[in-house]
Design a protein around this nucleic acid. Structure first.
Length: 270
DNA sequence: ATGGTGGCACCGCCA
């Protein structure tokens, strides 16, 4: 049984986390790693060391903020950065790999409820659903993953009461994310871990010992269309990859799929 | 604890 593994990681600067990423790839041997917050403009992207490690990489970035990259063992047959208007290029990177439509996104965080960036966040989700609708149907093999900057439910963060009005947990943000889900997506991590608490992908390193004190959020996600979710075999959060000497605040989130079970995967051939 | 740390910019901004 061939397992196809796809991971996501908000690096908060791919140059600062390059050693961590290369070490992790060497150990986990995933087929695809989607990276967010690369924080580097394309001419300065560290593609040589990634290719030297035996991986292909495509990327769309800008100076200092946002930016996405998709690292893969095989070369994507299709690549597109950003929405069609080209305005949001550093937040969305679409690739087609092994017949799967892989959408790597870094959703706007939103800053504060009364900030225009929060409206941008809500608009972004609506725009993203339209982007999906224009290209795919829920019968296609589509996987959407990345830093989605929303904890979908109370179980997905450490203090659902105190953080009710946080931009990553506000009902408006949850509804905007739900609007995308309702197009036809399944939370693959939750599918494998229903009702399991304390499964977090983000630990704010402004708090002291956030992992030990469980100060976490599940805001990074892997969502898939039903036929693809149906052949997912596992999903897990890799807390061990965190570096003590240079801690990242997000973790690696990994999902595997059994692509040999292709009966339910129409249009899988690339 | 309305702080805290970390990254990259440039001497503040963003998360």
């Amino acid at each position: 049984m061939t397992q196809f593994s796809i991971a996501t990681f908000n690096a908060n600067s791919i140059r600062a986390r390059l050693d961590q990423i290369l070490d992790w790839l060497a150990r986990e041997q995933v087929d695809v790693l989607c990276v967010q917050e690369t924080k580097v403009q394309d001419p300065d992207f560290p593609r040589d060391p990634i290719e030297a490690a035996g991986y292909n990489v495509v990327y769309a970035g800008q100076k200092a903020h946002a930016g996405v990259a998709t690292i893969s063992k095989t070369v994507p047959t299709l690549t597109q950065a950003g929405f069609d208007d080209g305005v949001d290029a550093p937040r969305l990177l679409y690739t087609r790999i092994a017949g799967l439509n892989i959408v790597n996104t870094y959703v706007p965080q939103g800053r504060e409820l009364d900030h225009s960036e929060f409206q941008h966040k809500l608009t972004w989700f609506r725009q993203f659903r339209e982007w999906l609708e224009a290209r795919f149907t829920p019968a296609d093999p589509v996987v959407w993953l990345g830093d989605l900057n929303v904890a979908p439910a109370d179980i997905d963060l450490y203090d659902p009461v105190g953080l009710r009005n946080h931009v990553d947990f506000h009902p408006d943000a949850q509804a905007a994310l739900e609007h995308v889900r309702a197009w036809g997506l399944v939370d693959v991590f939750r599918q494998h871990h229903p009702d399991e608490p304390n499964q977090y992908t983000y630990f704010d390193y402004r708090a002291r010992n956030p992992i030990e004190r469980n100060i976490g959020w599940r805001i990074d996600h892997v969502w898939a269309t039903p036929p693809l979710a149906a052949v997912s075999t596992r999903a897990w959060i890799d807390l061990d990859a965190r570096r003590v000497d240079r801690p990242s605040d997000h973790t690696f989130l990994v999902t595997t799929f059994d692509l040999n079970d292709a009966r339910s995967l129409p249009r899988l051939s690339s």
